[in-house]
Amino acid sequence: MNVFRLLGDVSHLVAIIILFLKIFRSKSCAGISGKSQVLFALVFTTRYLDLFTSFISIYNTVMKVVFLVLSYATVYLIYLRFRSSYDSESDTFRVEFLLVPVAGLSFLENYDFTPIEILWTFSIYLESVAILPQLFMITKTGEAESITTHYLFFLGLYRALYLANWVWRYHTEGFFDQIAVVSGVVQTIFYCDFFYLYVTKVLKGNSKLTLP
């Protein structure tokens, strides 16, 4: 555990809590892509199957359980509790265009051809693109509430901090997880355009993000 990894995990947790509280307190999921949230729940489910097979640390176990519970709670809020506020007409990204290639790639390029390892690989690849329905939705509507942009900022920052963590781990312990690193770079690239808008617009005091 290094500072980049810890800050990355904290950033990830903050992102998920921000989104959950935004929906819970406002009793509305307006502007939020339910599809992206289902994909993230699928990411955690397929990645954390090792909860049943290997123990790494108390920290690791607790964080995994928290991420799983919060991701499913968020999906519950969007599709059941506050379903009437869900903007399904703007959430039109075709997720099969993500799921099919990602599933195919996870069978082709993995560390071990076992179910749990293929599912782990699937989760890494899927995570790198899971935010696309949300970004697509913002592009389509042309705007996002500032609280939604804070969520996206911390969610993007998390993987960027993991990149620093991987550089650190490579130099200090020779650790190199090619699948995670390549996917992490791809994932972070998807946020770059958003980061630019976030810094130039939201942090300068605009109440919401509107696309130029």
Binding site: R5, D9, I56, N60, F67, Y111, Y162, N165, Q178
Partner: peptide, 10 residues
């Protein structure tokens, strides 16, 4: 690397 590994990251 093609060895199965323990995934210690989240």
């Amino acid at each position: 690397t093609k060895e199965p590994m323990l995934h210690d990251e989240l």
